[in-house]
Structures are given as structure tokens and as C-alpha cells.
């Protein structure tokens, strides 16, 4: 059953076209990769899916709800941005408890404890996030995004700055959520890590969708082929030409 439907979505910032004619749909339990070079529109699309940006044209449906359904839709979304959405002056536990309150989680303390346990940071829960490594912060940030058990998980460049162990742990956690029936959409440049992890890849170039496939290997080759198919002149999309 389709959970997320993106129908002819476009987004302009003034004269600049950041996204045009994006349409796809995904079912619960899929892990979708948004792949493309810098400026392809991956982050803009993620922000539209997160309801942080309204599309200039088209619509996004979450089951039978739309972005205008506000808090009801936001309750289904967990997002991990490139910036980790954590307060460095607060401890890991304080961060988790603060967001648990905001997300309307009922048992805040035990939810935060469980999240710290999953992140492998029970012993560091009372340490300030400012003193954490990038990998540790990423783990706290991911658990922060999952506190309210969202159906749709959005991740922007989640593998950036992580070592192999942290990357493997992150992939493991995402797979576990995928098995639990969550739809995961991640934007990444890291094709090596994404290869074999994604159930579907969506290729973006200059704000347009230039392909989509469901292969499980050779992602780098598929990516290259998709990029060759895309618009040749990067400036055409930026300045409104076709």
C-alpha cells in the first residue's frame, strides 16, 4: 500500500527553479535513496517531504493526509538533518527529554532512557552533547528523530563524517526501522554505503528526476547512467529554460 505520494512537485526560489516535475510514490517498509550531485534538489525535496517547505506546485500525500493537516502529519515524520538538530549546551538525556515532550511522548523519562540505550550511550547520557564526537552526536540525533516512532523517516546526508563502525551501526538501525514498517527516505552522496542498502534509488539532476530503479548492486554504474540521461545544461534548469 502506497504511503507517500509526490505528485508533480515543483519548487521555485524567486526565478531559480530548485525542483520541477517530481513525481513518485513509495510504500511503507521501503528505503528510498535520493541521489544526485550538489544542487540537484535533494535537500529541498526532503524539506518539502518534511513539510518545512511548501511546494510551489503539486502536492505531497501521506496516506490519505496532506501537508496541510499540520501536526497530525508532522507526528508521522522523523527527520535527521545534516545539522543534527541538537542543543550542544544540553546533555544527551536533556536533549532527548526535551524533544520527547515536544513530540507528545507519554513516558518521557523511560523513552529517553530507551533511546540512550539504543544509541549505546547510557553511560554518557548526562554528558553535554558539545563534548561528543560526530558519530556519538549522530546516534543521539537519530534516536531524537525516532523518539515518537515515526512512519516516515527522512535523512539528509546521514553518513557524512562517520567512520565505518558508526556507519554500520546507522545502517543496522535504519534496517531495523525498515523491517518495522517505516518508510525511509535518505539523501546521500555516499554511493558505496548506499549500494545494497536502498530498496529503490531516485536520481535527481538540476532539480529534475532523471530516473529511478530498484537494483540491488552496482549503484555507482546506475547513478552514472542516470546522470548521463539527465539535462546536459545545468544552467537551463536554474534560469527557467527548458
Amino acid at each position: 500500500m502506497q504511503y507517500l505520494s509526490v505528485v508533480d512537485v515543483a519548487r521555485h526560489f524567486g526565478r531559480r527553479k530548485a525542483l520541477s516535475q517530481i513525481s513518485f510514490s513509495c510504500a511503507a517498509g521501503e528505503m528510498i535513496g535520493l541521489l544526485g550531485p550538489n544542487g540537484a534538489g535533494k535537500s529541498t525535496l526532503l524539506n518539502i517531504l518534511a513539510t518545512l517547505i511548501a511546494p510551489s506546485k503539486g502536492e505531497v500525500k501521506y496516506g490519505d493526509q496532506g501537508a496541510n493537516d499540520g501536526a497530525d502529519v508532522r507526528a508521522q515524520i522523523g527527520m535527521l538533518g545534516h545539522d543534527l538538530f541538537l542543543y550542544p549546551e544540553l546533555t544527551a538525556r536533556e536533549n532527548l527529554e526535551f524533544f520527547a515532550h515536544l513530540y507528545g511522548v507519554t513516558d518521557v523519562h523511560s523513552t529517553a532512557t530507551r533511546a540512550l540505550h539504543t544509541a549505546g550511550l547510557v553511560d554518557r547520557g548526562d554528558d553535554f552533547v558539545a563534548g561528543f564526537s560526530r558519530g556519538m552526536r549522530q546516534r543521539v540525533a537519530l534516536e531524537r528523530a525516532l523518539l515518537h516512532e515515526p512512519k516516515l523517516i527522512l535523512l539528509d546526508e546521514p553518513f557524512t563524517g562517520l567512520d565505518q563502525t558508526s556507519t554500520a551501526a546507522l545502517v543496522g538501525r535504519l534496517r531495523e526501522r525498515q523491517r518495522a514498517g517505516c518508510l525511509i527516505v535518505l539523501a546521500t552522496h555516499d554511493l558505496d554505503v548506499a549500494d545494497g542498502v536502498l530498496s529503490r534509488a531516485i536520481y535527481l539532476k538540476d532539480g529534475r528526476m532523471v530516473g529511478s530503479d530498484t537494483g540491488s548492486s552496482n549503484l555507482a554504474d546506475r547513478y552514472r547512467r542516470a546522470m548521463d540521461r539527465g539535462p546536459r545544461n545545468a544552467d537551463s534548469a536554474l534560469w527557467g529554460g527548458e
Partner: peptide, 15 residues
Amino acid sequence: RYNDTLRALILAPAD
């Protein structure tokens, strides 16, 4: 703005 936490606040399913 530092860690983009305003986006996290806005994204929360709170009023």
C-alpha cells in the same frame, strides 16, 4: 540557527 534546531522545533507535532 547554530545546529538548525529551529527546524526541529518547527517539525515537532506541537502547536
